[in-house]
Simulated assay, not measured.
Amino acid sequence: MSSELDPRIMKTKQQLKRALIKLLSKQSTQSLSIQQITETAEITRGTFYLHYHDKQDFIQTIVNDFVTDFFQCALVDAKSSLNEKMVVSEHTVHAFSLGKGFKYMADNYQVFMVLFGLVGENNFTEKIKLGFHHYLDTFFESLELKENLQSANIKVEADFVIAGLLGIMQEWLSGGGVYSPRFVSNKMYNLIRTKSTAVVGVSDFFVK
């Protein structure tokens, strides 16, 4: 069995994730100590160092794990949404489901409130933005439209849509998530798809 799938290791890492979010809801990463982390997670320092080199390695790994989990949850098969514009095989092209993305945030509200507050090396907003650009690039490459990404119009549109989406996500969370994930995701879908054309573009990466 892979060490990553060992139930004991998975449990330890979950305890550490919960401990980090709990601690960062009250203090900064700079003031955080390994002793606080291990005591909150109820593990020994030795166990901590089995998995991480130091505090910074731990925080960066956990933040990156949440970014990965977010996209894994929200990426879906794009075949059905591209049917009218292009024929693709199942599971070869992935799009970002706004509905799944907003629901994942709602289900992990406290986590995202804490993570979006991080700055510096652990700037979660920047990591999510880079993630969107990466998967959007992959979307175009999978459709063999990589040359389209070199267009200034496409680059500006991608920057605009991603920045706007991230801004709405953060405002929605900071406002207490009073609107349902379904409502907000549908509104964002309608806004993003307003200028959808017969040619595959940035907006096609974002689906319901």
Rank of each mutant, 00 (worst) to 15 (best):
G201H: 02
I37S: 00
S97D: 04
I34R: 00
K79V: 09
Q30T: 14
I128S: 04
K11A: 09
M188F: 04
N186E: 15
K129C: 05
E141M: 12
S28D: 09
V88E: 05
Q27R: 13
Y104P: 03
I37R: 04
S89A: 15
V207T: 01
T47P: 08
D137P: 06
I192M: 05
I162M: 06
A19I: 01
L5R: 01
I168K: 11
A163S: 11
K129I: 05
A163W: 11
Q30M: 12
V119I: 09
K146Q: 13
S2E: 15
S174Y: 14
Q30A: 15
S97V: 06
G99P: 07
S25C: 08
N123T: 04
R182V: 10
Q56A: 12
S28E: 10
K187E: 14
H53W: 06
K79L: 09
V184D: 03
V199S: 15
L143V: 05
S80W: 13
D69T: 06
N83V: 10
R18Y: 15
I9E: 04
S142I: 06
K127E: 03
G164M: 02
S185L: 04
A95Y: 03
Q27M: 08
F140V: 06
V67T: 00
N122A: 09
Q150M: 15
G131C: 01
Q110E: 14
T125Y: 00
K55T: 05
E144H: 11
G176V: 01
K127M: 13
N108K: 10
D57Q: 01
V161W: 01
T44Y: 02
Q60E: 05
K79A: 08
L115S: 04
H94N: 09
T29A: 09
